[in-house]
Amino acid sequence: MASIGHVAVGMSLGRYEAGGSSRGRLVAYMLFFSALALLPDADVIAFKLGIPYSAPWGHRGATHSLAFAALVALGSMGLARLLRIAPWRLGLLSFVSVGSHGLLDALTDGGLGAALLWPLSNARLFAPVRPLPVAPIGVGMLSPRGLYVVVVEFLVFLPCWTFALWPRRRAAPEP
């Protein structure tokens, strides 16, 4: 995926969590959950380190697993305690944000699949239906194929973008 869908999911979760909070808190939650939704792709550093794509720590490997999402959720719960906010809620939304990444990547039509069940299995999995085009890596995004992927992802995730960015109602003034 081209990350547009991952960011849309993160921003939607941030909007949900912020509820009627201040604009600053809304933006903070959107940035936090978007960063978490993108976190699994930090594994692209494996290419620079000479780790093969198909290795457990290669791209779409361990960081795309539900176990990795659970570890990040536990970390978020610790952060929530420090910030004095509801840890279980933040943990659950963090799990959804990070866990959605591998699940969405399994919906793409290319690559090797995602290691969703790591460390129980190194198998790379795809969903039975794969409606999302796989994004070219790096400079390849600046091509007709890259533009196609961006447009498709934007359209598929339009409901998330709409929910995340729709103007909020202002509270009615108190009498």
Rank of each mutant, 00 (worst) to 15 (best):
T63Y: 14
G78V: 03
D109Q: 13
M77C: 13
A28D: 07
R169L: 06
L71D: 00
A172H: 07
V151Y: 10
L71R: 08
P167A: 05
V72F: 01
A123Q: 15
S97M: 05
E17C: 13
P133F: 04
L103E: 05
A8Q: 01
R145P: 08
S54H: 10
K48C: 05
G10A: 07
S12R: 06
L74W: 04
V129E: 00
L120G: 11
L107W: 04
T63P: 02
G24I: 05
A46K: 00
P128K: 06
A73D: 00
R130Q: 11
G10K: 04
L92S: 08
R89V: 14
A172T: 12
A28Q: 04
L120E: 04
G113T: 02
A115H: 10
P159L: 11
G91P: 02
Y53C: 03
A73L: 05
M11L: 12
V129N: 04
G78N: 09
A80K: 04
Y16K: 13
T108E: 13
L82G: 08
V134N: 07
L112Q: 11
N122V: 12
A2D: 14
P119H: 06
M77E: 12
G140T: 00
L71K: 00
E153S: 11
L117N: 05
D41N: 05
A8C: 07
L49V: 03
S21P: 04
A35R: 05
I51V: 15
S34L: 08
R168V: 11
V152C: 13
C160I: 07
R15Y: 10
G140W: 02
L116N: 06
F32L: 15
W161F: 12
H6L: 09
R124E: 12
L82V: 15
L82S: 11
A62I: 01
G75W: 02
S143R: 07
G110C: 13
R15M: 12
L165S: 03
A135Y: 01
G138K: 13
S34P: 07
S65M: 07
R89C: 05
S34C: 03
L31V: 15
G5V: 03
I85H: 02
A127F: 09
